[in-house]
C-alpha cells in the first residue's frame, strides 16, 4: 500500500514537473544541430546547451533544433537566407563542415558566417580488426604501397570527406601515387564501419576515436595510429602517427558559428559566454567523457584558424584529386 501511494505521488510529481519544464518561457538561445539527433553536431548542441543553462549563461533552456541535410549545407543556407542577423542563434560545425565548405559543397562561401569558437576536438585514428595480420602502421602502408587496391578501407564519411582525406594523407605520406585506387567504403557512422570490419567486410577503418573507443577497450579492434600531436591520455599505448614517422595529424574539432550580420557586441558576448563554458568543469567533464580533447580557440583567433584550415583543406582536396 505504501508503495502504491508513493508511486502515485512520485508519478504525479513527475507529470507536474514534465508540464512545468516543457512549459518554460521561450528560450533566449537556440542551437541548430545540422544533423539528425545522435550525431556529433547534435552532441555539440545538446551538451553546450545543457551546460550553458546549468551555468546560467542563458535564460532558461537552450532550444536545440535539428536541421539535417547536405552535411550541414541545409542549415548553412537557412541561416544565410533567413536569419543572418539573429543574435540568439548558434550553429554547430566541425572540421567535417569546413571540409565541405572548402570543397565548395555549401551554397555560400565560408565568409558568409561568423565563427565563434572551438571547444574540443576528436582525434582521428587508423584501426584494423584484432585478427588482422597487420600489426603496425608501417605494415599497413607497406601493403598499400605494394598494391593500393589490395585493402578495403572505410569510415563514416563519404568519398572525399574528412575520414577519407585523413586516410589518404597517411597514404600520400607513405608515397602512394595512385590515391584513387584505394578502395573506400562509406558507412553511416564510425561504429557501423567498425562492426562491418569485425564482420570481415572491410580491412581498415579511418574515423574519430570517440565513437569507437568501446571497441578499442574491449580488444575487438587494434588502433595502429592516432592522428594527434601528443598521445591520447585515455589510451597512452596508442602510438601517434608522428611518433611513427608519418607526419599527419587529423583532428575533428567541434565548434560553433553564428549569422554573418550579427553585431560585434553580440559576437563578442557569445565568445565570452563560450569561454566561460569552456573553463567550467561541467564542460571539461562532458567533453572528456565523450572522447573529446578540450581545446579552446575563440573569436578572431578562431576566425583566422577556420579560414586557414579551409585553405589547407582545399589544397589537400585538390592535391589528392577530390576537386579539380
Amino acid at each position: 500500500m505504501t508503495l502504491r501511494t508513493l508511486t502515485s505521488v512520485k508519478l504525479g510529481a513527475v507529470l507536474a514537473a514534465a508540464l512545468t519544464v516543457t512549459a518554460a518561457p521561450a528560450t533566449a538561445a537556440e542551437c541548430i544541430a545540422p544533423s539528425n539527433p545522435g550525431g556529433g553536431w547534435d552532441f555539440t548542441c545538446r551538451t553546450i546547451g545543457r551546460v550553458l543553462s546549468e551555468l546560467g549563461l542563458v535564460q532558461g533552456n537552450v532550444q536545440v533544433t535539428n536541421m539535417a541535410g547536405g552535411v550541414g549545407a541545409v542549415a548553412f543556407a537557412m541561416v544565410a537566407n533567413d536569419r543572418p542577423g539573429d543574435e540568439d542563434l548558434i550553429v554547430a560545425t566541425s572540421t567535417v563542415g569546413v571540409t565541405q565548405m572548402a570543397q565548395g559543397r555549401y551554397p555560400a562561401p565560408l565568409e558568409t558566417m561568423r565563427y565563434l569558437a572551438m571547444l574540443g576536438a576528436d582525434v582521428g585514428v587508423i584501426a584494423v580488426d584484432n585478427d588482422s595480420p597487420i600489426q603496425t602502421l608501417a605494415e599497413l602502408t607497406a601493403a598499400m604501397v605494394a598494391d593500393p587496391s589490395a585493402l578495403v578501407t572505410g569510415g563514416s564519411s563519404g568519398a572525399g570527406g574528412w575520414d577519407h582525406i585523413r586516410l589518404l594523407m597517411v597514404a600520400q605520406d607513405a608515397g602512394i601515387e595512385d590515391l584513387g585506387a584505394i578502395r573506400w567504403v562509406q558507412f553511416d557512422g564510425g561504429t557501423d564501419a567498425v562492426t562491418q570490419m569485425m564482420g570481415g567486410q572491410i580491412s581498415v577503418v579511418s574515423t574519430d576515436l570517440g565513437e569507437i573507443a568501446g571497441f578499442v577497450e574491449s580488444g575487438d579492434i587494434r588502433v595502429l595510429a592516432a592522428l594527434s600531436d601528443d598521445p591520447i591520455p585515455a589510451f597512452p599505448d596508442i602510438p601517434t602517427a608522428i611518433s611513427l614517422g608519418v607526419d599527419v595529424t587529423g583532428y575533428n574539432w567541434r565548434g560553433l558559428y553564428t549569422g554573418g550580420q550579427v553585431s560585434d557586441e553580440a559576437y563578442a558576448a557569445w565568445v565570452e559566454r563560450l569561454e566561460t563554458l569552456y573553463n567550467s568543469t561541467n564542460w571539461q567533464e562532458a567533453a572528456t567523457s565523450a572522447g573529446l580533447v578540450p581545446i579552446w580557440r575563440g573569436g578572431a583567433e578562431f576566425e583566422a584558424f577556420v579560414r586557414e584550415q579551409a585553405a589547407v583543406m582545399e589544397e589537400i582536396s585538390r592535391d589528392i584529386g577530390i576537386i579539380q
Partner: peptide, 14 residues
C-alpha cells in the same frame, strides 16, 4: 544512443 553518450554511458561491447 545520443542520450546515453551524453549521460556518459558508452554503449558497445563492454
Amino acid at each position: 544512443l545520443a542520450m546515453l553518450i551524453s549521460l556518459n554511458v558508452q554503449p558497445g561491447p563492454l
